[in-house]
Design a protein around this nucleic acid. Structure first.
Length: 351
DNA sequence: TCTGGGGTCCTAGGACCC
DNA sequence: TCTGGGGTCCTAGGACCC
């Protein structure tokens, strides 16, 4: 019998660190990457250097807010191409250790190692993880945090523990001690909403979730999510490391610089978005069946309208025509801040 | 001070079929 | 007048991840 061990590698402040490689003279300064790089305009923080984080800047926060917290920061626009290039080198480096590498976004990956019965599971993973950190530093000039565990859930939790430049191992026997006092929010799948709902039930830590009877979780959170909370809070996770997923959808959306009720402008924008999505469809050799149009109003209310074709398609004409029909089903009593287009239900085109 | 963009998965209700 | 039970597909919305 083989056993597995999972390593999670998480690049530190990835976008910001790549920018520092491009502009070493900015080293030591607070650096905020987001949107078009103009903190007076709409956008959110994609990454902040640790110097900027000292001021309370966090990724996901509005750029304007980050400017208020840290007006002395250097603001830079997102340069996806640069990060994708760097990410590809990172993933390639990791694939040198095993075929079982699952990328998770541009800056994270899971590695799975298989070890024989009797062999110390963690010994080999420790050597591997140390080597990864060393080579990421030497060959990419970047630092990363690494976590090791018996599964993805615990490996990811471990890499979180000692950021930045961290290294941490969670074994099964450590689970009660390490997880017990962590806030519930740290658990995979627990976001702001679930955190609040748990709190209202008097549950604040992962240990408290683990002590809650399964039936109680299921009746409050549903069969699927309730069971998930029950298992994750005990450190249990059987999900495999999967090197490649077929995509399920392609989408593009834009937030306008200013809210608008100019229907022609919205239509024109939607046209461009469907064009982009269709191009990606064709490039990847996919066809889709479901087209969805998304509208976000100025009050942030977000609605979607979708249509499913009887046959899959990658025709710009079909997709555009349906997108416009769907747009007719939404009302424009309020101004619009975002419009989006998505094609889902993808299937690989037959050659 | 407002709140990006690209994804995944889940739920609930209705239509439709057997 | 009363009207099941199960399965599948579709739509719309929401939570969460990076």
């Amino acid at each position: 019998m083989e056993k597995r061990v999972v390593i999670h590698v998480d690049m530190d402040a990835f976008f910001a660190s790549v920018e520092l490689k491009k502009r070493p003279e900015l080293k030591g300064k607070p650096l905020i990457v987001g949107g078009g790089g103009d903190p007076a305009k709409r956008g959110v923080v994609s990454a902040a250097s640790y110097e900027a984080r000292k001021f309370g800047v966090r990724s996901g926060m509005p750029l304007r807010t980050s400017y208020r917290l840290c007006p002395g920061a250097v603001f830079l626009p997102v340069d996806f191409e640069a990060y994708e290039k760097e990410s590809e080198m990172f993933m390639e480096l990791l694939r040198g250790y095993t075929d079982l590498v699952e990328s998770f976004g541009l800056d994270e990956a899971f590695l799975e190692l298989r070890v024989k019965e009797g062999e110390d599971r963690f010994k080999r993973s420790l050597d591997c993880a140390r080597d990864v950190k060393k080579r990421v530093r030497e060959e990419l000039g970047l630092t990363c945090s690494v976590g090791i565990g018996p599964n993805k859930l615990l490996a990811k939790l471990a890499s979180e523990m000692k950021k930045p430049d961290g290294f941490f191992v969670i074994k099964e026997k450590d689970v009660p001690g390490v997880l017990r006092n962590l806030p519930a929010r740290k658990l995979w799948g627990v976001g702001p909403k679930t955190e609040k709902r748990l709190d209202s039930l008097g549950i604040r830590t992962i240990g408290e979730i683990a002590k809650t009877p399964l039936q109680h979780l299921v009746s409050n959170f549903g069969e699927s999510f309730g069971r998930m909370l029950h298992e994750y809070s005990r450190g249990a996770d059987l999900s495999p490391v999967v090197p490649f997923y077929e995509p399920g959808s392609f989408s593009r959306e834009v937030t306008f610089e200013e809210d608008t009720n100019d229907i022609y402008f919205i239509k024109e924008t939607l046209y461009e978005l469907t064009k982009d999505v269709t191009e990606r469809l064709k490039e990847g050799g996919y066809m889709g069946r479901t087209v969805t149009v998304k509208i976000r109003y100025s009050d942030f209310q977000t609605i979607t309208r979708s249509h499913t074709f009887g046959e899959k398609t990658d025709s710009l004409n079909d997709i555009r025509a349906v997108a416009l029909l769907l747009l007719n089903k939404v009302d424009f009593l309020k101004k619009v801040r975002l419009v989006g287009a998505k094609v889902a239900n993808l299937e690989k085109r037959k050659k």
